Simulated scan of single mutants.
Amino acid sequence: MLIPLANDPRDYAWGSTTLIAALEGREPSGRAEAEVWFGDHPGDPSETPDGRTLDRWIAADGRSVGIDAPLPYLLKLLAAASALSIQAHPSKTQAEAGFAREEAAGIPRDAADRTYRDDNHKPELVVALSEEFRALAGLRELAATRRLVEGLGPGAAPLAKRLAEPDATLSAVIGWLLSDGADAARDVIAAAVAGTSDEFAAELDLVRTLDAGFPGDPGIVVALLMNLVTLRRGEGLFVPAGVLHAYLEGLGVELMAASDNVLRGGLTPKHVDAAELVSVLDPEPGLPPVIRPRDLGDGIRAYDVPIADFALYAVTPGATPARVALHGPAIALATSGAPEVAGEASLTPAVLAPGGAVLVTPDEGGVRVTGTGEVFLAQPGR
């Protein structure tokens, strides 16, 4: 069975006014359009043709077609015109402990200072649809960060001193910046805004952009400690538990575990719990977690991630149908052309326009894609 899905764009302030509209081939609404959610997450479930939300449809009819629980993933279109908050997500164990702790404390789940809104982890994968998608992901190698900060001169001396300590950890430095380092952060920002660097010119340009939107925010200095990444169309960025990240600009398909647990580290008016962020943070620096798809043949490419919550495929049909086996409920999202999506059991196709999506129930056994364009297919991992 194929169930068409629809949803309205969410109007977060960082959203683009043009990118989703251009993908869908319509006039812009004039509002920021940041995300379109495809799934049964109670925060904004998709709508089905009979007027029910997808969570209600699954609760009533899911078992008869092989869906016996809420979807383990949430699929999105994401369109950023400016930076999202710097953030990290907890592991499953951390989420369970944090959720139980805040439940016992009686903190309402919708409270502004609530950190753990459910007991699940939230690994996520974003794949660039625009020709470039810019992001911050992971912590830069310490030696390079020391070169960057030392090159800023006297204004960055307190930060340079902390980074130079033999036992320095980036998580401890981030905790200091977000709790007690506001004055030092403003000095670093001023030095970066005025600074020049051949090696880190892009990073200093980013500071200037962020300072225009979030004047004096300590998160700007946190951003200076992170890897600046530019994805090309079709490249992915996988963010596991504890990895600090922020999307900056571009259009992408995002797939994540079904959770709303976010620990923020700046660039936001929302609640920042520095101590809790540091407690879940992966402090190890390294290269950004960029993923390039694996070619499976017949126009199918897989984005390999080491988790069971979700799997993502990009499908570009050719002269013969592209077939993907199902191991759970899937959502197919068209991003170009006019692809035809059918289940292997029913073989009744749905023709999707860009931005259109369908739920494919597990009893179909597989998905067959024909026609033209591109489809992203999300389903549970193995």
Rank of each mutant, 00 (worst) to 15 (best):
D8Q: 14
A160Y: 10
E276F: 12
D119K: 14
E131C: 05
R323N: 03
T115E: 09
P269R: 14
T115I: 14
E103W: 09
G356V: 00
E132M: 01
Y73G: 13
V207W: 02
R63Y: 00
G151M: 05
A257G: 13
R186C: 11
L225D: 04
G39K: 12
A308C: 02
S130V: 07
P354Y: 02
E33N: 13
V193W: 04
R232C: 09
G15D: 01
P362C: 12
L206Y: 02
A34S: 12
Y12A: 11
V360E: 02
G250T: 05
P306E: 11
V253P: 06
N261E: 07
R146V: 03
W57Q: 05
S82P: 06
E364T: 11
F200T: 00
G219E: 00
A334F: 12
A308K: 14
G153R: 03
A160L: 11
V188S: 05
P321A: 06
F38W: 08
R101A: 14
T230I: 11
I67W: 06
A13V: 15
P123Y: 11
A353V: 00
G337K: 09
D295Q: 04
A246W: 07
S197W: 01
D113T: 13
L244T: 09
G355A: 12
G98W: 05
E27Y: 01
P269E: 06
F238H: 13
S346P: 01
D295E: 14
P285F: 00
Y247K: 07
I107K: 13
A338I: 00
D110S: 14
G30A: 08
I174L: 07
T335K: 09
A143L: 05
G234N: 05
F376Y: 15
A112E: 15
P4Y: 12
Y303M: 08
D118P: 13
Y303D: 04
W176T: 11
F200W: 01
L326K: 15
N7K: 07
G155S: 09
V367Y: 03
P166R: 12
F238E: 10
Q94T: 05
G371H: 10
H89C: 05
G195Q: 02
F200S: 01
G266T: 08
A60E: 15
G175N: 13
F133W: 07
I220W: 06
A79W: 01
E141I: 09
V315W: 02
A182I: 07
A143T: 13
V369F: 05
E141P: 01
F99W: 14
A322M: 06
T320L: 15
G266M: 07
V253N: 03
E374D: 06
I67P: 02
T53N: 13
V341Y: 05
P166V: 02
W57R: 04
E254C: 06
E47S: 14
E33L: 11
P240F: 05
A157P: 04
L225I: 10
R26N: 00
G216R: 12
E35T: 06
L152N: 02
P349E: 06
P90Y: 03
E103I: 12
V36R: 13
R368A: 15
A332M: 01
V222M: 08
E150W: 12
G250W: 02
H121G: 00
V243G: 03
